[in-house]
């Protein structure tokens, strides 16, 4: 394993920048997540690291080796594709062994490593099967196995959980985390799902329109989002972002942001934000309730304990503590005052 560095990396397709000026230093053994909406450039950034796309500008380094002009075959990275990209005509064993055979690893060692990977991923009895005989989840494990067996400098994962059903996704998320912690391999993980990003990454790089929006730990991104986009992207349910005057948060040049889970019903702390809103619909979540409010024409969302009694059509007062209030410049969308 090795550290990975992006130095002012850009990728242009016919004049449009898919990735612009990306600077990223990923530590040896770190699990970093690239997250953002479709088209933000996260996959392109990953593929440039893999060698499947050429960088237009900048340098990419694996360890202290500049790999811009190195073929994917020689970069010693392993990739897990969204579609798994298993070799359909080969058994699971051969799918795993293929990469090692290309490196002319001795047969016995190949066998040992394949069996070990199969054991780690609990695939023992699937070894002789072909991909079309496997379920989606099993294929995903084979894709992971292919990467593990190589013992590469870095794992590159391109939305590996997207094609799984919700329950399997949650399960596999944890397994991947456990795996990475066990093997300690540098991992660059791409996803559009901010929940995956928050739960899995040591650090998260939020991207939008090819530009890096913010790089930080999940906690940093949650408590101190640097701009409106990151604020609204991270956290579920999403942060309420409204013109400041609407909630008495400040002048018309500001946008006020506060998370649904930081809103309380009633008067609350004295120097926080206080405003009225009308309850439209309440969703019962078991442990909490999600209240959909409206103030004027603007919708708001509050996550409240189930004990709060709310009914449709009620007008209620809500408060947000000052240290949970974020203010953004309405024009630049950058944070002006954020998260205490």
């Amino acid at each position: 394993m090795a550290p990975v560095t992006y130095e002012k990396v850009s990728k242009l397709f016919d004049g449009t920048a898919a990735v612009k000026d990306l600077d990223l230093e990923i530590g040896d053994g770190e699990f970093i997540v690239l997250v953002g909406p479709s088209g933000c450039g996260k996959s392109t950034a990953l593929r440039m690291l893999a060698g499947l796309e050429r960088t237009t500008e900048g340098r990419i380094m694996i360890g202290d080796r500049v790999v811009n002009n190195v073929a994917p075959q020689d970069r010693d990275v392993a990739m897990v594709f969204q579609s798994y990209a298993l070799y359909p005509h080969m058994t699971v064993y051969n799918n795993l062994a293929f990469g090692l055979r290309n490196l002319k690893v001795p047969k016995q060692e190949i066998d040992a490593r394949v069996r070990k990977a199969a054991e780690i991923l609990d695939m023992g009895e699937l070894i002789k099967r072909k991909p079309k005989q496997l379920s989606g989840g099993q294929r995903q494990r084979v894709a992971l196995g292919r990467a593990i067996v190589r013992e590469p400098k870095a794992f590159l994962m391109d939305e590996p959980l997207s094609n799984l059903d919700a329950k399997l996704r949650v399960q596999t998320r944890a397994e991947i985390l456990k795996l990475q912690q066990r093997l300690g391999t540098t991992t660059i993980y791409v996803t559009h799902d901010q929940v995956e990003a928050m739960t899995m990454g040591d650090r998260i790089a939020v991207m939008r329109f090819g530009l890096l929006q913010q790089l930080g730990t999940p906690e940093e991104l949650y408590t101190h989002p640097r701009n409106v986009f990151v604020a609204g992207f991270i956290g579920s349910p999403a942060m309420n972002l409204v013109p400041a005057p609407l909630v008495d948060g400040g002048g018309s040049n500001l946008i006020a942001g506060f998370r649904p889970e930081h809103m309380t019903l009633g008067d609350g702390s004295p120097d926080g934000l206080r405003f009225d809103a009308k309850v439209e619909v309440v969703e019962y979540l078991g442990n909490d309730q999600l209240a959909h409010l409206v103030k004027g024409e603007t919708p708001l969302v509050a996550l409240l304990p189930v004990e709060c009694r709310l009914s449709m059509g009620d007008d209620a007062t809500f408060t947000v503590p000052r240290d949970k209030l974020h203010l953004f410049d309405a024009e630049t969308e950058q944070v002006v005052h954020g998260g205490g």
């Binding site: 499947l52 994917p72 075959q73 579609s83």
Partner: peptide
Amino acid sequence: PTDVYEAAAIDGAKSWRTFWRITFPL
């Protein structure tokens, strides 16, 4: 599918090997 070729490239297969082991059987 092209991603099979991409996977093979990352798995270290050069052009002749890719042709014989991936393309030809498929």
